[in-house]
């Protein structure tokens, strides 16, 4: 029996748009004529030619075009930075378990994002904005470093127009920033939150722990709290061991987890 090892699928770069100095979005469509099906919260392994692969969450789903918002942090992402429209890029995926969009239907939704953590949440906010009547009150709390690192500003406006309550807070103020300054838990603390709401949180682990704590103190049911965990996924198929978090293989069992499933793990140092 001969068997070919799995390899990336070729995807065509349809668009490249700069978001910030070190962060940009590439839109990719299958170049092999086959379809691709992705769910909000899933990720792909993007292959930079000769440099390797990096796990990148899907930041917008539009039919067969998947957007990926990438920050240049290492060799692979710097390689992906070279892509221009018309290039081919390798993609394996989509992998993992995404946000529970279906079970949110009919209820209130609280979205908490920190920094680039807004990227995997954007497809959820897109869905809410598109199918607004399916959801109740929708609140976004988005914390970022400063005015210059604010992502998706056009989307924030669109979402506001779709009756999504957008709260943005920055860690460091600047003369061109007139909004609040502080940690994302501050507007969260001050807000009225429906106890039966579903909350989706994505950002640095520390931020997620604090945000979850705030929401739980406000009476949210931990079963309705979901977080997206960051780890260095390599295979995407639960076979390389890198993304383990206690009993979980984050690539296979996550990256989105129910709060109850991972809260113990997140409390253990260096797990």
């Amino acid at each position: 029996m001969s068997l070919s090892q799995p390899h990336p699928r070729p995807f065509r770069v349809c668009a490249v748009s700069d978001q910030l100095e070190d962060t940009w979005t590439v839109e990719l469509a299958p170049a092999d004529g086959k379809r691709v099906v992705a769910a909000p919260g899933q990720f792909n392994m993007l292959y930079a030619f000769g440099a390797g692969e990096a796990p990148i969450s899907v930041s917008r789903i539009h039919a067969d075009v998947l957007a990926h918002t990438i920050r240049a942090v290492g060799r692979v992402t710097r390689g992906l930075r070279q892509l221009v429209v018309g290039d081919t890029v390798g993609l394996r995926g989509p992998f993992g378990v995404g946000w529970p969009v279906e079970t949110m239907s009919g209820g209130d939704v609280v979205v908490v994002a920190g920094g680039l953590g807004i990227a995997p949440l954007r497809p959820v906010l897109d869905t809410v904005a598109r199918e607004r009547s399916r959801f109740g009150r929708v609140q976004l709390f988005y914390g970022t470093r400063d005015r210059a690192s604010l992502l998706f500003q056009d989307d924030l406006k669109t979402w506001t127009q779709q009756n999504i309550e957008v709260n943005v807070i920055v860690d460091r103020g600047s003369p061109d920033w007139r909004g609040p300054v502080g940690f994302v838990t501050q507007p969260l603390e001050a807000a009225t939150i429906n106890r039966s709401a579903t909350a989706l949180i994505c950002g640095p682990e520390v931020m997620m722990r604090f945000a979850a704590g705030t929401l739980l103190r406000k009476g949210l049911n931990p079963e309705h709290l979901h977080l997206s965990i960051e780890r260095n996924m390599e295979c995407g198929t639960g076979q390389c061991g890198h993304c383990q978090l206690g009993p979980y293989l984050v690539c296979r069992d996550g990256p989105v987890f129910g709060y109850d499933a991972v809260s113990d793990c997140l409390a253990i140092r260096e797990l």
């Binding site: 001969s2 070919s4 090892q5 390899h7 030619f49 290039d87 390798g90």
Partner: peptide, 8 residues
């Protein structure tokens, strides 16, 4: 254009 071939 990039082409991929899985190793057998």
């Amino acid at each position: 254009v990039v082409r991929f071939a899985g190793e057998t």
